[in-house]
Computed example of a mutant assay.
Amino acid sequence: MRGLRFLRAPAALSGCLGVLLLFGGTPAYAHTALKTATPAPGSTVGSATSVIALTFAQLKPGTIPKIRLVGPDGTAVPLGQPQVADGSVACASVGSLPAGVDTLTYTVTATDGDVQTNAFQFQADEGTQAAAVPAACAGLSLAAPVSGEDDGADARILGLDRTTALVVLAAAVAVAVGGGAVVMRRSRRTRPTGRRRRAAV
């Protein structure tokens, strides 16, 4: 399907986002690769699909993958808090899927602590049968979906996830403060010269 594609999050954003590399950004390794998904990348499922499931090769015990879903218009789709089944399957409830091309982003932590963020797209169609709930998720009591605006972990600032935005803002403040310090130093250096000139007159 032409409109669908598998996406890999960039290692660094352009411009000032390059500063993020200094804050412990780690590369994406294959050992946390996505094995299967419901809906699957590039697939077409019914809008009534009620559960999203992601199966990974390895997950760090005790960690829960972060999952975010965005509709065709760029609006966050409400999801329930993910739960992990069988140590490798992340399950999350969804009220309904917006018709069109939806984008799902996930962040996982491997057993050695490496963090990977990737994304993929799938098609949701009102006239298509809903995807069946995966067996690994069927026995879980999944939390009801909550709006992206109410989910602090997925809150976004200026189009960026909260953590990234805060780091970028901190870097911008540091640059502003550094620039101000330079101006103050130059101003202090020029003041004595002015006084000597007035004294000579």
Score class of each variant (00 low, 15 high):
residue 143 A to N: 11
residue 184 M to V: 15
residue 168 V to R: 05
residue 157 I to G: 06
residue 105 T to N: 11
residue 15 G to W: 02
residue 152 G to M: 10
residue 118 N to W: 06
residue 122 F to L: 11
residue 155 A to T: 10
residue 75 T to Q: 14
residue 71 G to P: 03
residue 8 R to D: 11
residue 69 L to N: 06
residue 16 C to N: 13
residue 78 P to M: 12
residue 22 L to Q: 05
residue 5 R to H: 07
residue 171 A to R: 00
residue 88 S to A: 15
residue 140 L to M: 02
residue 112 D to C: 00
residue 151 D to V: 02
residue 59 L to R: 00
residue 98 P to W: 00
residue 45 V to Y: 01
residue 187 S to V: 11
residue 150 D to T: 14
residue 130 A to F: 01
residue 169 L to I: 14
residue 44 T to M: 07
residue 119 A to P: 01
residue 74 G to F: 08
residue 200 A to M: 13
residue 71 G to L: 04
residue 49 T to K: 04
residue 163 T to I: 09
residue 198 R to K: 12
residue 71 G to H: 05
residue 172 A to Q: 07
residue 4 L to I: 10
residue 111 T to M: 10
residue 185 R to M: 10
residue 138 A to I: 01
residue 16 C to P: 12
residue 115 V to R: 12
residue 163 T to A: 13
residue 100 G to W: 01
residue 193 T to S: 11
residue 141 S to E: 15
residue 61 P to F: 02
residue 183 V to I: 15
residue 189 R to S: 14
residue 172 A to I: 09
residue 192 P to C: 05
residue 19 V to S: 10
residue 143 A to F: 03
residue 77 V to F: 07
residue 31 H to L: 06
residue 12 A to D: 03
residue 154 D to P: 00
residue 174 A to F: 11
residue 43 S to Y: 02
residue 126 E to R: 05
residue 90 A to G: 06
residue 20 L to C: 10
residue 80 G to H: 08
residue 133 V to A: 09
residue 151 D to A: 08
residue 194 G to M: 12
residue 115 V to L: 12
residue 46 G to C: 11
residue 200 A to W: 08
residue 67 I to K: 07
residue 170 A to F: 08
residue 141 S to R: 13
residue 53 A to Q: 03
residue 45 V to S: 07
residue 165 A to H: 07
residue 160 L to S: 02
residue 4 L to W: 00
residue 170 A to P: 00
residue 77 V to H: 05
residue 169 L to Q: 12
residue 91 C to H: 04
residue 18 G to T: 10
residue 43 S to H: 02
